[in-house]
Each structure stands twice: as structure tokens, then as C-alpha cells.
Amino acid sequence: MAAEVWTARARAAARDRRRRLEHLQAYLFIAPALLLIGVFHVLPGLAALAISLTRWGVIYERFAGLENYAAILDPSGARFGEFVNALGVTAWYVLMTVPVEMAIALLLAFVLYQGTVGRGAYRVVYVMPYITSVVAAATIFEWIFDANFGILNEALGVVGIGAQAWLREPRGIFQMLGAAAGLGVPDALAGPGLSLVAVSIFTVWHFVGFQTIVFLAGLTSISRELYEAARIDGANERQILRRITIPLLSPAIFFVAIIASVGAMRSFNQIYVLTNGGPLDTTRTVPLLIFHTFFERTAVNGIGLGSAMSFIFVLIIVAFTVVQFRVLGRRVFYG
């Protein structure tokens, strides 16, 4: 009897010990990941706001309250002009890349989906640009866009279009088109620089393959029975597209729209390699401006100001994404 109680107790104690050991082991399993993410991700995230409230160049100088924010957001502030310019450039960059990428990728995905000879080979080729590092690919495009010896100018020359300076051309495209048609377009309506158009062409080239694959995966996941049922009911191709394909593809379209716009707003590498923000700041998007501000830290308050710009930019990206969710998200069909 006593022995039985004793063994039952011993068993319970052993079970407790095992459970405690398992807890301990679990904590050991997650500790490396949590520690690394905490130190290199969460801590800097929290510090960002604090740093943006200081004067900090080569070394920490002092607490500065909202001075940095005033310099950026106050129309009479020292950094207001360049920040607004950067926002404008970023907006044009998103507009000239995301819709174009998505339109081309959707078309490619539709045609690929309908099935052709060599579909697998096409897929492999389309993804090549996306796999290549942005830095290396942009280096190739610098050569293609070269004003004097680039093959793009040579190719356009064949169809009678004069040589352009591309990456070195700050003039707005509306103004250039206007001039070609003999119209004077005022500076206010000059539009994005040809330099930014060139950077956008590169961006579209680099990312179309990625989107094509995502759309193709979306199309492939739509059940063939739905199409067959619709055909039996006498639906024509247009109705099938409007009533079945587009609604069922809408989650993929929505996902790509969000990812691509946020990605375009955050782009750094391709712009750094192709133009480094020039000429005359016509390709200086907000990330480039933050980078330049940050690297001026040897002279002035680069770390403080750069952090404040980052913080404002993050809020803008979040706001933009929320609007996208509101406007587009409502039209997404989730089965």
C-alpha cells in the first residue's frame, strides 16, 4: 500500500520534472531566433523613433524634439523642398512601373495558361531577370541605355527616332513630347524626367517574370470544372472571363498590387546603380534621399534627419497600403 503511494508520487514527480524539462528545452529551441530578431529587428524599430528626435551626425549631439520633423514638413523648412520632390518622383515611379508590370504579366500569364508548346521553357526565360541581382542587371542596362554607344539608341535610330540621353536626361517627358510636336509645355506640366522613364523600363523588365509566375499559379488553381460547367450552360468566353476568371484571380491581383507598389516605393538598388538619384534629382526617390541625407552625417545631422524622413515615409507607405486595402480589397473575391 505505502509502496504504491510512493510509486504514484514518484511517477507524478517524474512527470512534472519531464514537463519542466520540456518547457526548458522549448525555450532553448526558440531562444536563438527570438534573441536575434529582438536585438536586430525590434530594438532598432523602437530606437528609430527615439533617434529621429535627436541631433545626431558623426556623433550624438543632443535631444532635438521635433526639430527634424519641422525641417522636413514645414514649407519653410530646410529639407521641405527636396522631400516633396522625392515624394513626387516616388509617386511617378510607382505609376510608371506597377500598372505596366501587372498588365504585361497578366497578358503573359493568360497566354501561357491557355497552353502552348514550350510553356515550361518560356517560364524559365521570363524568370531569368528576376533571379539576377538588381545590381548586375542594372549594370547591363546602363550599357544598353548609354547615350553615345547604347544599343537602344541604335535600335530607335532604325525607326527614325533620334538618340536620347536616357539616364542622363532630366527633361520631363511631356515637355519633350510637346517640343517634338511643336508645342510649348509649361514647366509645371513637364512630367517625370526621361531618366525616371528609363529607370522604370528597367524595373518593369526586372519584375514582370515574378508577377507572371504568381498570376499563372493563380490561374492554374482555378478548377477546370467551373469552366466546363459554364460552357455547358452556354456562357461565352467574355462572360467566363468576367464571371469566373477575374473574380477567382482577384486575390492574386490584389496581392501583387500591394507587394509591387510597396516594393517600388522602397526601391533603392536599381536607382543607386543607374542614376544615383540624378540628373538634377529627377530620379531621387525617398529611399535615395534618405540614403543621401544619412551619408551627409559627416557634415551635419544626417542620422537624426534621415531617421525622421524614414519615419514619415513609413507612415506614408502604411497610409497608401491602407487605402489600397480599402479601395481594392473590397473587390477581392475570397471564394
Binding site: L34, I37, V39, F40, H41, V42, L43, P44, G45, A47, A48, I51, W56, R266, P287, I290, F294, I303, G306, S307, S310, F311, F313, V314, I317
Partner: peptide, 19 residues
């Protein structure tokens, strides 16, 4: 962990450099 997904890279770059 899920929450930390919402910490954006552009906000952390400069603090990471400082770190």
C-alpha cells in the same frame, strides 16, 4: 513574432547602422 513583421526595413536601417 507576428507583430514584428510590421516593423518596416526603412525604419530600422539607420538604427541598425548605429547599433
Amino acid at each position: 513574432l507576428l507583430l514584428t513583421l510590421f516593423i518596416p526595413g526603412e525604419a530600422t536601417l539607420i538604427p541598425q547602422f548605429v547599433l
